[in-house]
Nucleic acid binder design. Sequence first.
RNA 1: GGCGCUAUCGUCUAGGGGUUAGGACGUCAGAUUCUCAAUCUGAAAACCCGGGUUCGAUUCCCGGUAGCGCUACCA
Length: 500
Amino acid sequence: MPKVRVRFAPSPTGYVHVGNARTALFNWLFARHHGGAFILRIEDTDVERSKEEYERQLLEDLRWFGLDWDEGPDKGGPFAPYRQSERLDLYRRHAMQLIDARHAYYCFCSPEQLEAERQAALKAGQQPRYSGRCRTRPREEAARKVAAGEPAAIRLQVPEGVFDWNDLVHGPTTFSSEVMGDFILVRSDGQPTYNYSVVIDDHLMEITHVIRGDDHISNTPRQLALYQAFGWQRPEFAHLSTILGPDRARLSKRHGATSLQNFREMGILPEALRNYLALLGWSAADGVTEIFSDQELIRQFSLERVIKSPAVFDQEKLNWMNRHYLKEARRRKLAELSVPFLAQAGYLEEPADERTLGWLERVLDAVLKNLDTLSQLPAAVRLIFEYDAEGVLRGDETRHVAENAGSRDVLKALIPKLLEVRDLNYERFRTIAKAVQKETGKKGKDLFHPIRVALTGAISGPELEKLIPIFEEGSKLPLRRHVKSVAERLREFAAAAGLS
RNA sequence: GGCGCUAUCGUCUAGGGGUUAGGACGUCAGAUUCUCAAUCUGAAAACCCGGGUUCGAUUCCCGGUAGCGCUACCA
């Protein structure tokens, strides 16, 4: 069996949809599983849709996603170029070859004329397909018209019959030639159409397996007709199901985050997205395992276990997956990833220095389990950076806790003791808390809840054990937004609450 | 309209002629904690409908329905 060669062939639209990302991922997994090659090819023949700066963005998104390719526009390869816009000559040459072999012909029908015919057929309740009018025109006449500069498209003469293939996901699939008519290969402006260029490229690049979205199923017979006309061996085909939104319509921007860039900005980890997407349409042989390293994914991946039915994208489950990888990730790496989010909230300078990064690791350790995504970080650390004693006394929930008599007793006993301490740490805090417990008779909730409120301004949050060192260390750091120490907080609180 | 694809808990899925139809997310309840989470334990929750084939269909076949796709000088 020849070496496996697969490709991912996106249009550079500046937006990599998760559906496409999954297609890329499956191609990549398949290639890596078989020790084959994964090729990136840019389909930029649709001038309207393609912009040059989008290509850079596309490569960057794919790299962020964690895929690497063996051949592509940025790194070249034995079948270069990998940009369709640079392969125009190839398409033209092969089209001429087809014309010479009488498998294709020039068509001079105007788009208006064709559209009118199409509408008429539709109105009559008939299958709209090209009449084949130009098919019978003598070659000499056609050549003359072309030479005279008349605009002409090139159409494939599709033979009558049946086109079928054994889809690696869907099984045997059949289409009749009746549904397609003689379709266009090269537009009158010289640009190749998708169904044409894809065949030329896949053949010339020696692609062995075409793995793509199932919206291409209906295109496959056209491409088969082309392979047949050229007498080329065709690749295997595998069609992946569509990803839907919660309303079962094709997932689109109106459903929320759908592009790699969206997920990146949300603070979804690429490894989480990879793992989640791998599970959309594929499952492991044991039917149970869901958390996979890339190595395991590569080892276990097979097209036989890819499912045919469409899948609804579930942001909740992605969030769960992301939480898992957030907890798993190295703290240092997360600290670095967090900086942009915190800088944007106005808390930190970017880039952050070493000490700040070290401190951030502690912060992350305290708040991570409350996060779905990194974009939720600013809200989670709000109580670290923004302390406002007046606000505590104003807030409905906090005021209730801070102002009752029991709380005031606790805080009255606690604050002077705490303010005396140098280099406060949790040990010392704990000792003092015990003393206060003895003195006031309050314990557990009655003891700690008022302290929490006075210290953080919130009725819930991370463990005080973690917060106290964070406050103390943070207060010594030159951050854009100063973090108040325990002493600063308590002094402010005492003043605001009239406790001193 | 024509052609095609698809159909197991709300969602992602495993399974497959006889199963207590398995797992995960989410939901709910309990345990734990200074709180919220996290964690652990438990619960509720599914074979689209109608015909066949069969001793027996959720599974195989046919039809229907629904959703999606293609039907372009878009990709």
